[in-house]
Design a protein around this nucleic acid. Structure first.
Length: 633
RNA sequence: GCUGAUGUAGCUCAGUCGGUAGAGCACCUCAUUGGUAAUGAGGAGGUAGGCAGUUCGAAUCUGCUCAUCAGCUCCA
């Protein structure tokens, strides 16, 4: 048989050789590191004998596919261990995932983290037993009967969902058999360095209508050192958690008295205000007008907007003078009412209305998560009212705006284009037009994106920008939605050059998303060490002896006079103590003032990042800080 | 909302078999005036998330409830 390698070279092998045999023919080391392979572009077992001509790529731990195969085998070993230790446990599914694997089980008695040690030990035993993985296939009906016999109803259900004529594959390792498409590594002895991470509930097939199963998450690495490093990194990442930093740095918190309703303390408020200043400046540059619309508006408005029908389970309501009102979950109706205040000419468009709008949404209690997921938050919202032929340019404009914000902070992000959901308003044609416009705008802006079918808003398709938090969970921040529905519902119009009434198009967009969420991500991104332009305190003036209190106070006042966020530490403490405290608080600069400095007419500057950077005149320091603030570094 | 876990001073945590709570940091007082990540000594501070129950007696056991954490579902 002819085997074509990734570099294009072709070599001839005898039929019946496996990818592992071929690897061994190249080098023992390659054979040892080969986990699975890619056969004619499809991932496949490396241990199975090959027949006929193929394109072959050997996959090792360095390849995504290799890691996937390794961890998928680990998930089977987890299931095997659980079956041995807890007979009667019913299996659901167990895939490899980013950074690990999981397996879902159905068992009357819940697992506890205390069981992990025993399960891990059993998995290690299975690894030591070095059981070869074997693949076998049977016709669908036979497979269903086989799994019925084994009392695996979830597996039966999975097979029943496959096409009538399909051939079903299984993998066997010792006493354990699982329905599986594969591929797997050659034997359980390959998989080492397994760690069970956590236990959680998960609905069968991801639907809350189904039974909740018990999911065990784990991870596995080829090298022990890599596992240790991963575990260490996870621990380090936890130190960056914004909920922890919010308390430690006295920025913000959430009290039991208001689940999902965050408090911003003075220092957190500074970060927030600086961010909002930046937001205002950037919107002014881009020709937006700022508005502020009410938090509570009457029932009729929400009926007209469609929110009442589509969103009422997530809304808060109140009664005023025996009339129903709703607390706004979105700002659009407010912006729309603003638009209706006058007659617009085509010459007035685009009309870009921006609003830092406080919205309230009743999120499920289990969904709340620090500042990332709250029940009241401020959207940096903008609504653009435009003519149909302005759509593409304006979409590109808002994309540019989002990109500008993220690049200012050095965020990496992922972009998704979400299409028409079920239960949405409007015609198929409108949706197609809108979705197409968004796609064109992304392409013109040279942004790569993923399609997210059926995940759009009820009034239109959307582009979402997702940012990652400290431990790799991703959160939607910016969004751009193209909307033909609201203008229709509210009978919005502008007068065209032809003196006729025309329907404007709306773009709903946020760049930061929610100020609260953005601050959470910002806090984790910088691990609390905010750059000087947003830092709650930029500089602390600290004294070594109270002989210099007067001079220190004068320096402090000069800093304050030019608007620098300075603090004065004249406490009766050693300088090391004061420095430590300022470092822990991650304050960008410390000015150490003692007899020497007073004599020399200088300040001794310590940078949070670089330590002692020497003495300089106060003016020189102020210039340095000023520059940092302006350049946002 | 669902599954599991957790809930002790402002914060981080300890507390063996149920016998009415302890540390470090922070806070206050005093001494110390010290040169780039913690000076020393002393003091104050909690009825153990809440409500019921079992018990002679509960932070420790049981039930309910609230909140938090992890994940699922949902979502900016």
């Amino acid at each position: 048989m002819n085997i074509t390698f990734p570099d294009g070279s072709v070599r001839v092998y005898e039929d019946g050789q496996s990818a592992l045999d071929i690897a061994a023919g190249i080098s023992q080391r390659l054979a040892k590191s080969t986990l699975i392979c890619e056969l004619d572009g499809e991932s496949a077992d490396a241990f199975r004998p090959l027949q006929g001509d193929h394109a072959l790529k050997l996959l090792t731990w360095e390849d995504d596919g290799g890691r996937w195969g390794y961890r998928h085998t680990a998930s089977h070993m987890l299931a095997q261990a659980v079956k041995r230790l807890f007979p009667g446990t019913v299996l659901a599914i167990g895939p490899a995932i980013e950074n690990g694997f999981y397996y879902d089980f159905d068992r009357a008695d819940p697992f506890s983290p205390d069981d992990f040690a025993a399960i891990e030990a059993e998995m290690e035993r299975i690894s030591k037993e070095d059981l070869p993985l074997e693949r076998f296939e049977m016709p669908r009906e036979e497979a269903i009967a086989y799994m019925r016999e084994n009392n695996e109803p979830y597996k039966v259900e999975l097979i029943q969902d496959l096409p009538e004529d399909s051939v079903i594959s299984f993998y066997k390792q010792g006493d354990f058999v699982d329905l599986c498409a594969g591929p797997h590594v050659k034997s359980t002895g390959v998989v080492k360095n397994v760690k069970l991470m956590s236990l959680a509930g998960a609905y069968w097939r991801g639907s809350e209508k189904n039974k909740m199963l018990q999911r065990i998450y784990g991870t596995a690495f080829e090298k022990k050192a890599d596992l240790d490093e991963y575990l260490f990194r996870m621990e380090e990442a936890k130190k960056r958690d914004h909920r922890r930093l919010g308390r430690e740095l006295d920025l913000f918190d959430i009290h039991d008295e208001g689940p999902g309703f965050p408090f911003f303390y003075p220092k957190g408020m500074t970060v927030r205000n600086k961010l909002e200043d930046f937001w205002r400046q950037q919107h002014e540059i881009r020709d937006y007008q700022e508005i502020k619309t009410p938090i509570i508006l009457n029932r009729d408005l929400w009926l007209q907007s469609g929110h009442w029908d589509h969103y009422k389970n997530n809304m808060y309501f109140t009664v005023i003078d025996e009339m129903d009102y709703a607390v706004k979950p979105m700002n659009c109706p407010g912006a729309i009412l603003t638009y209706t205040r006058k007659n617009y000419s085509y010459r007035d468009l685009p009309e870009r209305l921006a609003e830092l709008g406080l919205v309230h949404r009743h999120e499920l209690s289990g969904a709340l998560h620090g500042l990332m997921r709250v029940r009241c938050f401020t959207q940096d919202d903008a609504h653009l009212f435009i003519t149909p032929d302005q759509v593409l340019d304006e979409l590109c404009g808002v994309i540019e705006k989002c990109k500008y914000f993220y690049s200012t902070f050095g965020f990496k992000y992922r972009v998704e284009l979400s299409t028409r959901p079920e239960n949405s308003m409007g015609t198929e044609e409108q949706w197609e037009m809108a979705t197409d416009a968004l796609r064109k705008a992304l392409e013109r802006s040279e942004i790569s994106f993923k399609i997210n079918e059926g995940d759009g808003a009820f009034y239109g398709p959307k582009i979402d920008f997702h940012l990652e938090d400290a431990i790799g969970r991703s959160w939607q921040c910016g969004t751009i939605q193209l909307d033909f529905q609201m203008p229709e519902r509210f009978d919005l119009a502008y007068v065209g050059a032809d003196n006729e009434k025309h329907r404007p198009v709306m773009i709903h967009t946020t760049a930061l998303g929610s100020i609260e969420r953005f601050i959470a991500i910002l806090t984790e991104h910088y691990a609390g060490a905010f750059p000087a332009w947003v830092a709650p305190v930029q500089v602390v003036v600290m004294t070594i002896t109270d002989r210099v209190n007067g001079d220190a106070k004068a320096i402090f006042e000069k800093l304050r006079a030019v608007g620098m966020r300075a603090e004065l530490d004249m406490r009766n403490e050693k300088i090391g103590f004061k420095i430590r405290e300022a470092q822990v608080q991650k304050i960008p600069y410390m000015l150490v003032i003692g007899d020497k400095e007073v004599e020399g007419g200088v300040v001794a500057v310590r940078s949070r990042k670089e330590g002692d950077i020497g003495a300089m005149s106060l003016d020189a320091f102020m210039e340095k800080l000023q520059k940092e603030v302006q350049e946002k570094i």
